[in-house]
Design a protein around this nucleic acid. Structure first.
Length: 195
DNA sequence: AGGGAAAGCTTCATTACTTCA
DNA sequence: CCTGAAGTAATGAAGCTTTCC
């Protein structure tokens, strides 16, 4: 970059005093001036054409430089408001997704409980009613069930193991899972959830 | 055609001041 | 009054684009 402005960090005390006294003349713009500037900013453009800037400055009795600075500061204020707004929106979306996720976890838990009960009943009734309970192990049932779910990686894993590992996962992670400030990846939790 | 200087604009961070609770 | 926080006009540094030679 080409240096075009002189550095006044080493400015004389006199220069600093002049600058300070100039700043002392700072006056807030009138309501009328602000109203016109705001309306141009909102209705026309966040940036001013040089000609328009001159026109507005004349109309408001301001220096063109003051108009330019007002627009510059306005853009900065607008941008930070926009960031706040975007953050609030993202936060709301996140909260909504998180609560949906939590509902799914609860639903999953209750379905697993139901599955466990049915599984127990199945074993019991086979034994009591048909007298075949002793031949039908739960691991047989669960492994055939897993095949239906395209899970054939672990042939020894029982329904109980599955439930236990799910609960372990839930209990370990539920504390930090829904906290956006944690560094753990939400995707990995989703993967764990569905695998 | 292309390169450098200058001008004029921007953003960003900061300062200096005003206003208000 | 005094004070601290918030708001804002203004400044300076640095970067980008355009124009001119």
């Amino acid at each position: 970059m080409i240096e075009r402005r002189k550095d006044d960090s080493a400015a004389s005390p006199e220069a600093k005093r002049k600058k300070k006294s100039k700043m002392k003349n700072k006056r807030r713009f009138s309501d009328e001036q602000i109203r016109l500037l705001e309306s141009i900013f909102e209705s026309e453009s966040t940036k001013l054409e040089p000609r328009k800037k001159m026109q507005v400055a004349t109309e408001l009795g301001l220096q063109p430089r003051q108009v330019a600075i007002w627009f510059q500061n306005k853009r900065a204020r607008w941008k930070s408001k926009q960031i706040e707004h975007d953050y609030a929106q993202l936060r709301a979306n996140y909260d909504s997704l998180a609560s949906g996720f939590e509902s799914l976890i609860k639903e999953k838990e209750s379905l697993l409980l139901e599955l466990q009960m049915l599984n127990e009943q199945l074993g019991k009734s086979d034994y009591e009613i048909n007298g075949v309970g002793k031949d039908l192990k739960r691991s047989d049932w669960s492994s055939s069930n897993r095949l239906n779910n395209n899970d054939n990686n672990d042939n020894n894993k029982s329904v109980d193991d599955f439930i236990a590992s799910s609960e372990k996962w839930f209990n370990e992670d539920s504390g930090g899972l829904l906290d956006p400030s944690t560094s753990s990846s939400p995707q990995s939790h989703w993967l764990n959830f569905w695998v």
